[in-house]
């Protein structure tokens, strides 16, 4: 056979990619614990944290670095995974976890909580507000689009709900009682994993695990959807049921992530794109890899933020968008060149 005809990518085996990513993520996890404005020796800090009178470095480790690292890992993994799921489900490489309104719905819910001043009274208020906003937005998309909606109807419904949620966020900013409140809301919206405690991590963990659980095992259905919804149905998959299960899962997991970290852009969109060529473009092989990849990207971005010169700390959401947007442009140009 003519060699030029063989355009098949020699894909590294799926298991090797997952192992590689997992090792990388592990290394980044420990690096993330030890670096920052004050580098800390991990072993000593861990030993001291276990002792009776915790030292300063052990407090930095357990109260600041550990929650921050865990939250970045969890939120990044959710964004990568949900981005891969949405792109597979809607068969659209431009789909992102926010497409069905979950991010902006969560932002609205959380901002409303901040505006009402509930966040200071009750720690739970912010994440709960975010998740309710996310689920509410998804529910509205569901009602607007209908059970057997076409993909175009779904995307349009998502755009409408996103616009509405962001308009409501603007309204709240507009009505905010003081410049301080405006600043608090605006900074929250930039997206950050800094200044979080272990209680934030626990709040994030449970809805995230439920969301991931609902997404687990959806790979084969997403593979079948490569051939279109009709063919997927005749291959034995109940497409509307699959679709709404995945929407619910995304609303839960992304809603939880956004309500803890604020909106962190481009991780959900870019991660699956980076990984797709490595796994032969197959949706099922993209799930675990994109989850690991999203965790890696967000951890990296957060470490960059910490290593920048001290002063006004740049929010990690700003970094991901600043790096993500040009990178996405580059991807589009590359795709265009291939198509020509």
């Amino acid at each position: 056979m003519n060699k030029a005809q063989t355009t098949g990518t020699s894909t590294i085996s799926q298991r090797n990619i997952i192992s590689l990513f997992a090792i990388l993520l592990g290394l980044l996890f420990f690096t993330s614990l030890s670096i920052g404005s004050n580098p800390i020796p991990l072993l000593r800090a861990t030993a001291e944290a276990a002792g009776d009178s915790p030292s300063i470095i052990s407090l930095i480790l357990t109260e600041i670095r550990l929650p921050r690292t865990l939250i970045a890992l969890l939120a990044g993994a959710t964004l990568g995974l949900c981005g891969a799921v949405m792109q597979g489900l809607l068969r659209n490489p431009l789909a992102s976890p926010g497409l069905i309104g979950s991010s902006s719905g969560a932002a609205f819910g959380a901002v409303l909580v901040l505006y009402l001043g509930l966040a200071d009274m009750l720690q739970l208020a912010l994440p709960v507000g975010g998740m309710l906003g996310s689920l509410g937005a998804m529910l509205l998309v569901y009602i607007l689009a209908g059970r057997d909606a076409s993909i175009v109807t779904l995307i349009l419904a998502g755009v409408a709900i996103n616009t509405l949620a962001l308009a409501l966020v603007s309204l709240i900013l507009n009505l905010a009682p003081s410049p301080y409140a405006v600043q608090e809301i605006a900074l929250w919206m930039l997206g950050s994993v800094a200044d979080k405690g272990m209680h934030d991590f626990w709040l994030l963990l449970f809805p995230t695990l439920i969301g991931w659980g609902l997404l687990a095992g959806s790979g084969k259905a997403l593979d079948a959807l490569t051939l279109g919804e009709d063919t997927a149905h005749t291959l034995g998959f109940n497409v509307p049921a699959v679709r709404w299960r995945l929407f619910l899962a995304t609303a839960l997991a992304v809603g939880a992530a956004v309500s803890i970290t604020g909106a962190i852009g481009f991780v959900g969109l870019v991660t699956p794109h980076l990984i797709r060529p490595l796994v032969g473009h197959q949706p099922s092989r993209l799930l675990t890899t994109s989850a690991l990849g999203g965790g890696i990207l967000l951890l990296l971005a957060d470490m960059v933020v910490r290593l920048l010169p001290p002063g006004q700390e740049i929010k990690v959401g700003v970094i991901t968008s600043l790096v993500g947007a040009p990178f996405f442009l580059y991807l589009i140009l590359k795709t265009r060149r291939v198509q020509i």
């Binding site: 490569t226 051939l227 291959l235 473009h281 197959q282």
Partner: peptide, 24 residues
């Protein structure tokens, strides 16, 4: 069922595509 619209949404390798037929 072989639909009239025979588009394949991701650039899969032929062998992976045929493998999808075993999903049932």
């Amino acid at each position: 069922y072989l639909a009239q619209d025979n588009s394949v949404h991701w650039p899969l390798l032929v062998e992976r595509l045929v493998e999808l037929g075993r999903l049932p």
